[in-house]
Write a protein that binds this DNA or RNA. Structure first.
Length: 589
RNA sequence: GGACGUGUGGCCUAGUGGAUCAGGGCGGGAGGUUCCUAACCUCCAGAGCGUGGGUUCGAAUCCCGCCACGUCCGCCA
């Protein structure tokens, strides 16, 4: 409804300006501050004042006078206020919003005939997922969700780096060492915690081992890489044994968030199907291609990148960026748009990739790269190889444990007699604990660095997931209470005009904005605006909840039904907004 | 050294040209429950948006310099 009223306002301003013989290139449509009752406003008067030769308020008055609200369904009136033209919503706007939001898919936009592949996480399968990387699946999943809600056909991909030196080292270490060679027991009973010990052992050996032994190991690692390059099946099987196991464990960990993927695309695919060789040939033909120090490189200085892109090693093997080029061309062939979520340490690589894809004749408008800054510990960086950092599993466990404690203490002084059993406590602890972690990360602008602190990430009060989740639980509480002492309420034909207090109107206005928030978040690939929205929505709901009883005996039946419809609308809005963020919406807590 | 990014009350954060209060939260202070869950709400104190210039009728928002912090600058991924 908000999108519809915005279209009307745009049309109204444009027509008015045309009628006044003024330019319509910038309509200045914006959302007014909270204390203004209009849904939308225009600030064009500022810009046109000079041209008209009159002060802005006068221009605003002229524009407002030119608009006949009766031409529109959702605009009740255009009123000048200072230099602004404010647009007040009509009763129909509220009625239609209320009706539309009864649908439990409220917030989903019209299906678009466009496919989008969202690649995120793509962490090398070397060991447990740590918190430093956790921003990727959380932001990536939310980006995919929001694009999905916006009506696109989304595929979630995890690109598996199974062809690099790291994996060759891992494979060699896995085959060379025995359990007995490892000093420590696995930190957790899951495959990637077991196997990462071989990887760490291998790396330590290569750094500190006896020179001759290291040389022999390097030869073996080299032969694994050559084997993959040559498309050797047996080598592929050896590497896959490690990759698939580790990946399986990481997948379980990510599934706890939950972040799930439609497809795991292996890097080796592009070596085996010949597309990497094809890319190499085409790169060599480019004017930017140079052969320096026995390796083929791309000199991108003319394109603003002073670092050469090496695409073929002196031993004839390809590099990660070369295969990634083939990977992206594959995405371009199979999808209309490609979105990649990656850490800021891949910034240069991202630029080189985009520039090179362009040189190879691709339409790089299809590619959108979302960069996020790293999550650091107060002590510094996290590293899988070094074994430093906090594992995502540990963070999630701690979050759930703290949430459970919270649930238990609150259980004692609970007013509501809905008798939560042990399963409920377990469920709520999980929803709240994991929700808090996700919300804390997804609600911040990705470009800002985060220093991870337990207490801050797991604060269940205030601007947090539980605050918003609680609103959903309250909506559910009212709705189930209503169903309890009333047989099937038919809310399809309620009178929205009965919702006439400022609290009800404010809440309904917030509900109305939801689809527009989805649209904006999807267009800009910024899921955090959805998080910001949930906070406003929750505030509005709490004000309504405080001021407007729904089920009291003294509430007139018609008003009660209208309010129940509003509660339903709020429930769908807050529930679906949380769904976009990947945060569960509890029915009770 | 270069490239890119970030810099908003004690702490965290929204806001990327406009509405004479820069919005929230935490922490601090004072209150609120005969009512659909107090993981809630109300009130008080607290910043002029790193810094110096510039553009503009108007700048936290745009431009330039400087400072601080982060990331990157491998024939690693």
């Amino acid at each position: 409804m908000f999108i519809a009223v915005r279209e009307e306002v745009e049309a109204a301003v444009e027509d008015a300006l045309t009628a006044l013989d003024l330019p319509t290139d910038d309509l200045g449509i914006e959302e007014p501050p909270e204390d203004v009752e209009a849904v939308l406003a225009s600030s064009v008067a500022y810009r046109l004042a000079g041209e008209v030769g009159a002060p802005p308020p006068e221009v605003a008055a002229d524009i407002a006078a030119e608009i006949d609200a009766s031409d529109y369904g959702y605009v009740a009136e255009a009123v000048p206020q200072g230099a602004y033209v404010n647009f007040l919503p009509s009763d129909r706007f509220f009625a239609d919003t209320l009706g539309e939001a009864q649908n439990d898919g409220y917030g989903r936009l019209e299906p678009k005939d466009t496919s989008v592949v969202v690649e995120h996480t793509s962490a090398n399968p070397t060991g447990p997922v740590h918190v430093g990387r956790a921003r990727n699946p959380i932001v990536g999943d939310a980006v995919a969700n929001v694009i999905d809600y916006a009506g696109y056909d989304v595929s979630r991909h995890y690109y598996v780096n199974d062809a690099g030196r790291q994996m060759a080292v891992f494979t060699w270490a896995y085959e060379t060492f025995d359990e007995a060679d490892l000093e420590e027991a696995p930190e957790r009973d899951r495959i990637e915690y077991d196997l990462v010990r071989y990887y760490r052992k291998g790396n330590a050996f290569l750094e500190e081992g006896d020179t001759d032994e290291v040389e022999a190991a390097e030869a073996e690692i080299e032969s694994i890489m050559q084997g993959l390059e040559a498309g050797d099946e047996e080598t592929y099987e050896r590497v896959s044994e490690v990759v698939d196991q580790v990946l399986g464990g990481m997948r379980e960990c990510l599934g706890r968030l939950p972040a799930e993927f439609d497809r795991f695309v292996k890097e080796t695919k592009f070596m085996f199907d010949g597309s990497t060789d094809d890319v190499v040939d085409r790169l060599q033909d480019l004017d930017e291609a140079v052969y320096e120090e026995d390796a083929w490189q791309l000199d991108l200085e003319a394109h603003g990148i002073d670092k050469n892109l090496v695409f073929l090693r002196s031993d004839g093997t390809s590099l990660y960026p070369t295969r990634d080029l083939a990977h992206h061309e594959w995405k371009f062939e199979n999808y209309d748009r490609a979105v990649t979520v990656l850490g800021e340490d891949h910034n240069l690589q991202a630029e080189q990739l985009r520039t090179t894809l362009d040189l190879l004749g691709n339409d790089t408008d299809q590619l959108e790269q979302v960069l996020y800054s790293y999550v650091n510990l107060p002590e510094g960086k996290m590293s899988t190889r070094e074994g430093t950092g906090v594992d995502l599993d540990d963070l999630l466990d701690e979050a759930v444990a703290r949430a459970r404690k919270e649930v238990e203490t609150r259980l004692d002084d609970r007013i509501r007699d809905d008798e939560l059993d042990e399963d409920d406590v377990e469920r709520i602890a999980r929803q709240v604990g994991i929700g808090a972690v996700r919300y804390d990360i997804v609600s911040k602008q990705p470009s800002k660095a985060i220093t991870f602190e337990w207490d801050r990430a797991l604060d269940f009060e205030a601007q947090s997931a539980p605050y918003v989740q609680y609103v959903h639980a309250r909506c559910c509480g009212i709705l189930s209470e209503a169903a309890r002492d009333d047989e099937a309420d038919d809310l399809s034909d309620v009178d929205a005009d009965r919702l006439d207090t400022e609290y009800e109107r404010d809440l309904l206005r917030a509900v109305a904005r939801f689809p527009a928030v989805i649209e904006e978040a999807a267009d800009d690939l910024k899921p955090h605006v959805v998080a910001t929205y949930t906070r406003t929505l929750a505030e509005r709901f709490n004000a309504f909840y405080r001021e407007c009883p729904v089920l009291s005996d003294d509430v007139d039946p018609e008003l009660r039904d209208a309010r129940l419809a509003l509660v339903t609308a709020a429930k769908h809005s807050v529930g679906n907004a949380l769904d976009v963020l990947g945060v569960e919406a509890p029915d009770s807590m």
